[in-house]
């Protein structure tokens, strides 16, 4: 899992070649509580780094998912649309939100690795 990178807004991205898979962290799903609704981007949509790409809602909270890097969406995860609970059960695996082709791999450099993210979470306590 060392290829996973995180944002301060608790999104993660997993990179394989020029394709990235985006989701929200375990910390984020825990803070939200039971996820009841998600909206994922459609294939072909261009997303910019830091811009709203998806929506995730629990009973008492709504949050935007900001794209960790720029790129073009190749797929949204229909499974979490049909079964939002997957985001809680498997946030960093089956509960992914979308995949994209990464426009500029250098943007990945500004993201945190697992150790840095864990350290960052400690500062939030």
């Amino acid at each position: 899992m060392s290829d996973m990178r995180f944002t301060k807004d608790h999104e993660w991205i997993k990179v394989a070649g020029d394709v990235g898979t985006v989701g929200i962290s375990d910390y984020a799903q825990h803070a939200l509580g039971d996820v009841v609704f998600v909206e994922v981007p459609e294939k072909g949509r261009a997303v910019a780094k830091g811009a709203e790409a998806a929506v995730v809602e629990s009973v008492k909270a709504a949050s935007e998912v900001y794209s960790p890097v720029s790129g073009t969406v190749t797929a949204g995860n229909q499974a979490i649309v049909d079964q939002p609970g997957l985001v809680n059960e498997s946030p960093e695996d089956a509960g992914w939100f979308y995949t994209l082709t990464i426009a500029d791999p250098s943007e990945l450099a500004s993201l945190m690795d697992r150790a840095a993210y864990d350290a960052y979470l400690k500062t939030l306590e």
Binding site: F37, E57, S58, V59, K60, A61, A62
Partner: peptide, 14 residues
């Protein structure tokens, strides 16, 4: 009461 995330007490200016 349900689907409250549409409403002002949660979504505020959105």
């Amino acid at each position: 009461l349900t689907l409250s995330t549409r409403e002002q007490h949660i979504r505020r200016e959105k």
